[in-house]
Design a protein around this nucleic acid. Structure first.
Lengths: 148, 148
DNA sequence: TATTGTTATACTCTATAACTATA
DNA sequence: TATAGTTATAGAGTATAACAATA
């Protein structure tokens, strides 16, 4: 049983435990900041996520649910509330009349942009790291996530 | 305006943007795994967090709310549900009769232990990194979080 | 008076199941 | 038959405000 074991039942060493705890702290701080940024625009976290998603590209209700990893029925309500505020609209899909494409309005695009700008998680914690450090961090995270 | 600027309105460089996106992915994966681990024990995320919190140390309802960063009134319901399942109990505080100390039962301690063990975020993604890499990652995260 | 925990209320998110309109 | 979106329903988390017991 070495430190490099992939045995899922292997007890974690002290270093791994500390890294996991640090990641937990990052997760908590990230979420807190995201919720606050959303609240500053009178949005819930879920609404902000959908708005951010649609600001990149309109998409069917079904696909929003897949991205959010939730049931399609939930998306109806979230989009309803965004639509009631004029930030999002439902458009018919010319290729399939069953499908409704959710798309941000001009106002919604503005809100999405301000939301993105007010998310200072990008700048504040990472500002403590040099460009070189950030590069090392990027590589480690990539490998951790299996995307490198 | 240099790359090291702390100006909160400064646009983020490409590297910073990528690191933030990677952190976003880590956050999403961490949360997904936490919710699944909780669900395997028929707990919600909030219930699992409170159980984990109390498994370290009994504490007043008020302090649970502070740790969860939510209103004290919410804690009543979460602890109610844990108590109904016999995982947690309310005890009087001998020093202040207004206070109720929430504490895990023996059964709750067992569930908390199994929950912790089933959280394999500790092992799976970090297994891709060597001990040296994990040390570097720990140092970068510490500095990012301002705890070093 | 201030504090602790609770209750009452309203809103949002969530999953499940049944429904509709299309395909 | 199958799929996209919705509705209906119920449970859980959340904040706000008002309350009882205690400090």
């Amino acid at each position: 049983m070495t430190q490099h074991s992939h045995d899922p039942a292997a007890p974690a060493d002290a270093l791994t435990v500390e890294v996991v705890e640090l990641i937990g702290t990052v997760v908590a701080r990230y979420h807190e900041e995201y919720e606050h940024a959303a609240a500053r625009h009178a949005l819930t976290g879920a609404q902000a996520r959908v708005l951010a998603l649609l600001s990149r590209e309109p998409m069917p209700m079904r696909r929003i649910a897949q991205q959010l990893k939730c049931e399609p029925s939930n998306v109806t309500g979230i989009v309803d509330r965004l639509e009631a505020r004029g930030l999002v609209e439902r458009r018919p899909d010319p290729d399939d009349r069953r499908v409704k494409l959710a798309a941000v309005t001009d106002e919604g695009m503005g809100t999405a942009g301000r939301l993105r700008a007010s998310l200072n998680f990008a700048r504040e914690p990472l500002a403590a790291l040099s460009a070189e450090d950030r590069g090392v961090l990027r590589d480690l995270l990539r490998r951790m996530l299996g995307t490198a």
